[in-house]
């Protein structure tokens, strides 16, 4: 399998000279299976430059997996050019929204409404299929399997695992390490802690031994206290998770939009220094736009 990053920013695009090296587009990852199938993880603004590279392979089938429907993970979807061209097929996978009780299609359709976009979904020429996934439901794409797990974010968010020929990639979507809402000694602290252990264990088991972990790493440990509950991970938390799960390579992504290239390199280095290399450690890397990695 091969992965390529097209959007590595969280929250909002952040173009400009200070982010040239890392890139300013919001989340989008291209994954090519060994059979050449196209899997796209999230449809942030990075999906637009990805779409530009797809013309030689039209007509195509794209298998899109949406971790969750916050803007930075879907705002590029209306600009996915192959959806305007007959003969293409777009299969969009994601969760049902149990709060608004809307299916994935109903949630995404809003982007194509008159107020927001000039083309209605009904006018798109490609074949659009929506697949509402349940937790841990897996989908086969050629000889690859995509399965999911609910992570921890302000909205239901699936982390996706793609496996093929003994190799595997896991993408967290947006995820914050669980924290206890009680203070130590308070009634409820221990019980809450037990549930957290169970959930954490389920996450670790799910990603155990994956070749590549792509993890939401919006914050440093200095940023975090002011942003607890916002649903995003830290360098240190992801290093912990990757070590526990025995992951081989980690890509830190979903970079904080105000973090420029120099700053990002610095906080990355500081996190590595704080967590000195241990035997069996994964390789830790910063995700950059257009960076390619052979799994």
């Amino acid at each position: 399998m091969k992965i390529r990053f097209w959007g590595v920013r969280g929250s909002i695009p952040s173009p400009g000279p200070a982010t040239l090296n890392t890139g300013g587009n919001t989340t989008c990852i291209e994954l090519r299976t060994d059979d050449g199938e196209l899997i796209i993880l999230d449809a942030g603004t990075g999906i637009f430059p990805l779409a530009q590279t797809l013309f030689p392979e039209l007509p195509l089938t794209a298998h899109l997996f949406i971790s969750h429907t916050h803007w930075d993970h879907i705002q590029g979807l209306p600009f996915f050019i192959p959806s305007f061209i007959p003969g293409n097929t777009l299969k969009i996978h994601g969760a049902f929204d149990p709060i608004s009780r809307r299916s994935l299609r109903e949630v995404l359709l809003r982007q194509f409404e008159y107020s927001y976009f000039p083309v209605r979904e009904a006018e798109l020429k490609a074949r659009l299929q929506y697949v509402t996934l349940r937790e841990r439901e897996s989908v086969r794409i050629g000889s690859a399997t995509v399965s999911n797990l609910l992570m921890n974010h302000p909205v239901l968010n699936f982390g996706y695992k793609i496996e093929q020929n003994g190799k595997s990639v896991f993408f967290t979507g947006d995820h914050e390490e669980l924290y206890n809402i009680y203070d130590p000694g308070e009634p409820g602290y221990d019980e809450y802690g037990r549930y957290m252990d169970e959930k954490n264990q389920a996450i670790i088991e799910f990603i155990r031994g994956v070749d590549v972990l792509i993890a939401d790493t919006s914050y440093t440990i200095e940023d975090y206290p002011a942003k607890q509950g916002w649903g995003h991970g830290t360098f240190d938390g992801n290093i912990r998770m990757a070590r526990k799960a025995g992951v081989k390579t980690v890509f830190f992504t979903h970079h904080e939009p105000t973090r420029d290239d120099r700053n990002l390199e610095r906080v990355f280095q500081e996190a590595l220094d704080r967590n000195p290399t241990q035997p069996g450690d994964p390789t830790f890397l910063l995700a950059r736009e257009r960076l390619e990695f052979e799994v």
Binding site: E135, V155, Y192, E198
Partner: peptide, 19 residues
């Protein structure tokens, strides 16, 4: 569509999230 049944609000906070 959860794979595990939830029996308390605390548990719900952990498994589907506070928000």
């Amino acid at each position: 569509g959860l794979t595990r049944s939830i029996s308390s609000i605390r548990q719900a906070m952990v498994f589907v999230g506070v928000n």
